[in-house]
């Protein structure tokens, strides 16, 4: 009994610590107060109105989403093609490039950012949206590669050969046999790439042109550089929206996987 109470209190205490800061923002996003802790008058949506009329934040949101989708798409194509190509190359080639692929994963983000910034300057590549996109692709592609390779290992190698024997061209065999087999790995790599890109601050700040902001860089400049920034209250509304979207996605995902499990039974 004591053990049970102890276990439950550990869980709930840590959950409370994790959620109090976020929930505080959510509650105060429905109030016009500029300072958390001081509740002014009543519940209202003024911060949301502020958020949706702030051109800078809106463009940061747009950039963030566009960047996440485009870098995840490029990473997925690049990483999947690379995984297939290298997996069917000589063992040594695969081994070497598999290790090289892990370099951006294990090294600190800031080192990756610095390294790519140096490369862009040597190649006389100015800081543009393209350099930012390259940075995000470098951040994301190793994760696509590493989630596709295990699926290739699980696949029966005879399937591809059988396809060829039955008259399919290598291209056709690839798209109608290999890709469908490894699709779960590709999808999870893509989703992981999206979350990594959405979460990134360091690589973005080193590679973006000064005219572009993402949610991360905008929020950093508002909160860290300038304590009296007037857009902070609007960012509360943004945090609340982000939190709500994540909860919706998690619940939907949970329901789908539950349904699948039941169908499986």
């Amino acid at each position: 009994m004591v053990k049970k109470i102890l276990s439950a209190s550990i869980i709930w205490l840590v959950l409370a610590l994790l959620y109090i800061p976020v929930l505080l923002l959510v509650v105060y996003s429905f109030n016009a107060s500029s300072e958390i802790g001081i509740w002014s008058s009543e519940w209202n949506l003024s911060l949301y109105k502020m958020l949706f009329s702030d051109e800078k934040i809106l463009s940061a949101i747009k950039t963030t989403l566009l960047l996440a989708i485009s870098s995840a798409t490029i990473s997925t194509i690049l990483g999947t093609a690379g995984a297939i190509g290298l997996y069917y190359s000589r063992k040594r080639t695969f081994k070497i490039f598999n290790i090289v692929t892990q370099i951006p994963v294990v090294s600190a983000d800031i080192v990756t950012a610095v390294a790519i910034a140096l490369t862009c300057s040597i190649l006389l590549f100015p800081r543009t949206y393209a350099s930012l996109l390259i940075g995000h692709v470098v951040l994301c592609f190793p994760f696509v590669f590493t989630s596709v390779v295990p699926k290739l290992k699980q696949m029966d190698p005879n399937l591809y050969e059988a396809g060829l024997d039955l008259g399919a061209s290598p291209r056709k065999a690839l798209f109608s046999i290999v890709i469908p087999e490894i699709l779960p790995g590709i999808v999870s790599g893509f989703l992981l790439a999206i979350t990594l890109s959405l979460d990134d601050y360091v690589i973005t700040t080193f590679l973006k042109p000064s005219t572009i902001d993402t949610i991360s860089t905008y929020a950093y400049n508002a909160y860290a550089k300038n304590a009296a920034n007037t857009s902070i209250p609007a960012l509360r509304a943004l945090s609340a929206i982000v939190f709500a979207i994540i909860i919706i996605l998690v619940v939907v995902n949970f329901l789908i996987s539950n349904k699948k499990k039941k169908e499986g039974n």
Binding site: V14, L15, L18, Y19, I20, P21, V22, L24, L25, Y28, E35, I36, G37, T195, L198, D199, Y201, I215, S216, A219, Y220, A222, Y223, L235, R236, L238, S239, V242, F243, I246, I247, V250
Partner: peptide, 23 residues
């Protein structure tokens, strides 16, 4: 529930802690 906060943008998460401490 424990993993979920990980998906909130990390700068916004840090900002939330700042708001709490200032409160």
């Amino acid at each position: 529930l424990f993993i979920l906060p990980m998906w909130i943008n990390f700068v916004l998460r840090t900002a939330a802690v700042k708001e709490l401490l200032y409160m």
